[in-house]
């Protein structure tokens, strides 16, 4: 099976950036790698048609990645994962567990439904405009705005709950 021209170079150059976004979406390093591999595998047959530059191909792969992610929880996606892939996952070691920000972000994003999480990642990490986000998700700008608004409200509430818990703990510990 012949690898499409330019595909290997693209994966080497751009997969780290794709993995970062995928981690923000999934909150798990192994799932992030699954997501990126799945998106790249889906793009493979169309590579020669979609590749014009690294940036345009990356935008296409991101679209596939985001929509794949948002629809993952709608079906038993694990049935699609071949057992043969497991060793590759196991070889990676999560060296980031001790980073507080990483865990905080993972927990914060973890309470959001997939669609809201996708909007937050696209708007505040990828820095896409509302219009670009709407185009990628094939929804209206108003939908992007309302999903972001709901997600931010949820994150604010969670911050309140965290602050509240911290305050209560401090009160308990106070002599």
């Amino acid at each position: 099976m012949q690898e499409p021209v330019g595909f290997g170079q693209f994966v080497a150059a751009r997969s780290p950036a794709l993995l970062r976004s995928a981690w923000l979406l999934t909150g798990d390093e192994a799932l992030a790698e699954d997501l990126v591999q799945t998106a790249l595998a889906r793009v493979w047959p169309r590579w020669e048609r979609i590749y014009r530059s690294d940036s345009s191909a990356e935008a296409y792969v991101r679209r596939v990645m985001v929509t794949t992610y948002a629809n993952w929880w709608r079906r038993q996606w694990r049935a699609e994962q071949p057992v043969a892939e497991v060793p590759e996952r196991a070889a990676r070691v999560d060296g980031y567990a001790e980073v507080n920000d990483r865990e905080e972000v993972r927990q914060a994003l973890g309470v959001l439904p997939p669609r809201q999480r996708a909007v937050i990642v696209l708007r505040y990490y990828e820095d896409l405009t509302e219009r670009q986000t709407a185009g990628l998700l094939d929804c209206s700008i108003g939908t992007v705005k309302s999903q972001a608004s709901k997600a931010l409200r949820r994150l604010r509430e969670q911050s309140w709950a965290t602050v509240d818990d911290t305050t209560k703990a401090a009160d308990r510990d106070r002599p």
Binding site: E3, G8, V11, A12, V36, L40, W44, P82
Partner: peptide
Amino acid sequence: PISVEAVTNRV
């Protein structure tokens, strides 16, 4: 980076 071989296997 992800290995191209992993993607190939998945394809």
